[in-house]
Design a protein around this nucleic acid. Structure first.
Lengths: 346, 346
DNA sequence: CGATTCACCGCATACGATTGCAGTAATAAA
DNA sequence: TTTATTACTGCAATCGTATGCGGTGAATCG
């Protein structure tokens, strides 16, 4: 090859170029390529000439042109909180795989758990409409989704129990049940009486739900929640570390803690280690999510497994059913159960 | 709000709608909105009417129309091997942040380390041209990149020492030097003589380079590499586990191993643990990358830190300098040094 | 042999926004 | 009063593709 030092963007190859080379009209090229030659027949010889010209010029159709004409964008958008959180990787990966199977590209945006980020995402989609949107919203309301759907006509699938829009398919884990079970297990099987909770702001629906499940489990077992036992983090490992430190500074520290996600649980383990406490003997720790590092640390983290990969797969398939027009009924709700994975940290 | 059960995608609001409402022509609306009213003046009263109509209809310009006319796509594409590998997260995140700052959306594709995947990515970009491409290619040649640039006119930035296209900006870590140093350190400071290597196929430029650095370090120190000490994985934790198992099954197993990435090193630690070996007393382990879990495991992993976030930032900034036309000279090469992080596993 | 049918192909328009060019009215200059 | 200038606005072409409609030549039918 010869690498020119400045490859002038050679004028892009269009259908007209192909047409000229094949001595046919541009419409004929279009018909040959789009397979509509079944309806409006094209001579075999002509077809061959066109195909040859296509190959010779290396013609690739320009998607943008078709999009303007109202065709499919062959693009879906994914909104998550933070690509840096391992919880989203299997989800994103599953979505990308399903999309790839359908010949679709995937746009990804982070919101950092902020409503502004989520709204900004919607604006982006209105400016650049896509065929489908797959999201993990924390703050968006059904009204926001309604606006999005009305303006863009996109199919929408979302993760989260709190989404109830009539046209949006949703998946969600049975996290409330699982939290309840995990706490109950901590009390009755492991014999803990002083249990702390590392949660997040109530503005996260998932956070509020898990906290409520925690309180219910405690109450039902007749175990009291001591002051200072309800700490708040921001989903990050660092915040988990701080939260546990705060609890351990109490006069009567808990003997076990439940963290709303693994990252915070891992941070808590770090704090325990630094304070010279043994896990689980001095302080038992239970996480939520079951991200890979949970089974790499020592002691291995006892946690509740969600199945983000599976969830992403379900969501993506549902989304493409709508995009492909195979389904257009009311929003479907898929619940995928979580599993308590008992390892060594509790 | 009222959630209709089937919000008919209300006919999208176009400039013509705005024009009609404001009793002006569509071109006038365009001029008001695109700020070109500085060159071609527009009456204040007219301008106000247009703006009011825009707000009233909630008009948002359709990006696709402008794109077809040769405007910017406001979109960049990112190609990585696997979003599931923690190494790429800071990189992707940095790119997304820089892109967001420039009001750009980001498309992401995985190649799973396969050449087919990389080529498929290029085809996608030719079909849907973007303003910029940021990639971590393992197999793509300069010729492939040349074709990509020629066909799409996109600015390209890549990670990898082996990319030398005259129009592509590149970043790369000084991984060869770091591997050399790490091995030398293992020999002279830690006193190891029997050192194993967990690498990958030679078809990965990075793999070949690190392996060569390993061999050079060994040779220069006059330490022999025993048969069976060169194992091959596929970058995954599982493969690292198997690789160490294979080495430990040798009659004379190594006392230390170097793994080409942290995932494989973590897998090796897992294997050591299962075989009842103490790290680092029985077997020392050194990784490469310094992903977060490296400092969560016990013993903490000694590893060579690359700085993917920093690299992504550099690459993204370079890319946007080209996109914005602030730079269009020859490809720049940025080297960012790696650091040996001594922790507890070696 | 004239009329109908059919196979095949091109013309022209539309999608939504930008922009060169032209046009109109009002004002300024001659 | 005529001309030149300015301030403002509209017309129409354009990007690349899909598609309704119309046209042409040949074959078939009555």
């Amino acid at each position: 090859m010869s690498v020119r030092s400045r490859p002038q963007r050679s004028a892009p190859v269009t259908m007209r170029d192909v047409a000229k080379l094949a001595h046919v009209s541009q419409s004929t090229v279009s018909r040959v390529l789009s397979g509509s030659s079944d309806l409006i027949p094209i001579g075999d010889e002509t077809k061959a000439r066109v195909l040859k010209a296509v190959k010779q010029l290396g013609y690739q159709p320009n998607l943008h042109a078709g999009i303007l004409r109202g065709q499919k964008t062959q693009l879906i958008a994914v909104m998550i909180a933070d690509i840096g959180n391992a919880f989203y990787h299997p989800l994103v990966r599953a979505v990308q795989d399903v999309a790839g199977f359908h010949q679709y590209d995937v746009m990804i945006a982070n919101t950092d758990h902020m409503r502004d980020g989520e709204l900004h995402f919607c604006e982006s989609i209105i400016r650049r409409p896509v065929d489908g949107v797959l999201m993990v919203p924390y703050h968006l309301t059904d009204a926001d989704l309604d606006r999005l759907i009305e303006r863009t006509g996109a199919a929408v699938a979302a993760m989260g129990q709190h989404i109830e829009h009539p046209l949006v398919d949703t998946v969600f884990g049975s996290d409330d049940i699982s939290v309840f079970d995990a706490i109950t297990w901590l009390i009755h099987v492991r014999g803990h009486q002083r249990i702390g909770f590392i949660g997040v702001t109530q503005s996260f629906a998932a956070g509020a739900r898990r906290r409520q499940a925690f309180e219910q489990a405690m109450q039902q077992a007749g175990v009291t929640i001591w002051p200072g036992y309800m700490q708040q983090g921001d989903w990050s490992a660092e915040s988990g570390e701080q939260a546990l430190r705060a609890m351990l500074a109490l006069q009567q520290p808990p003997t076990a803690v439940f963290a709303c996600n693994d990252l915070m649980a891992l941070g808590a383990m770090e704090a325990a280690d630094q304070l010279g406490l043994r896990v689980p003997q001095d302080i038992a720790i239970v996480g939520f999510d079951d991200i890979p590092p949970a089974s790499w640390v020592r002691p291995r983290l006892t946690t509740v497994a969600q199945h983000p990969g599976h969830m992403g797969d379900i969501l993506a398939r549902a989304l493409f059913e709508r995009i492909d027009g195979e389904y257009d009924g009311p929003g479907r709700r898929y619940e995928v159960p979580c599993d308590l994975i008992v390892r060594e940290s509790a």
